[in-house]
């Protein structure tokens, strides 16, 4: 079953199950620069971006018990932590969070489901690169740069409705592409 997992998911599981520092180091090397790029795109200054990267990666270390490869691939899971961190920095009080999923008790993973999820993640990446540029840009601004729709509108001079419909169209298109590959 180990073969179904990406290297990153395997490292994250090693951190989760064995508190494996070498595996964590590899995750850091892969994700930290990308997270920093994301935070810089979102408008943080270099020093703050570094600090937030540290926070997020430390949370990855402490929350690893929550990682479930049946529900998310490593990148989506780490992105989710970074998204919440970014949100809470912008809020007066932290955003309420749903109940944590029960920790993985049994170590009998469902290989087929994990494989399906990994494939879906790969297909999603491929589908993103086939999007029309304006849809891809709109999705990147919303999901990666974390720029509010209103500011995207200011920056591009496009009406808010156009921004929203581009994001919507991009999502519909992705949904369509993923449905094509669904078993």
């Amino acid at each position: 079953m180990k073969n179904e997992l990406s290297d990153l998911a395997r490292d994250l599981i090693a951190v989760r199950d064995a508190r494996d520092r070498a595996a964590f180091g590899r995750l850091f090397d892969h994700f930290a620069p990308r997270l920093k790029a994301m935070l810089l795109r979102g408008g943080l200054r270099d020093g703050s971006a570094e600090d937030v990267v540290q926070d997020v990666m430390l949370a990855v270390w402490h929350k690893a018990a929550q990682f479930d490869p049946h529900r998310a691939d490593a990148a989506a899971w780490i992105y989710g932590i970074a998204r919440n961190r970014r949100i809470d920095m912008a809020r007066r009080r932290p955003l309420a969070q749903p109940e944590e999923m029960p920790e993985i008790e049994s170590l009998e993973p469902d290989a087929a489901q994990i494989l399906a999820l990994q494939q879906e993640a790969a297909q999603l990446g491929a589908a993103l690169s086939r999007l029309a540029p304006e849809q891809a840009d709109a999705l990147r601004a919303a999901y990666f740069d974390d720029i509010p729709h209103s500011r995207i509108s200011e920056m591009t001079g496009l009406p808010l409705g156009t921004i929203k419909s581009r994001i919507r169209l991009g999502l519909d298109r992705l949904r369509h592409e993923l449905r094509k590959i669904a078993p």
């Binding site: 920093k36 998310a72 899971w77 780490i78 989710g80 999603l124 993103l128 690169s129 992705l174």
Partner: peptide, 17 residues
């Protein structure tokens, strides 16, 4: 939604730490 964010994160070019 996090899957989309994760896909974008994976494809991003990193910034020097």
């Amino acid at each position: 939604g996090d899957m989309i964010g994760g896909a974008l994160l994976s494809r991003a070019e990193g910034a020097a730490l």
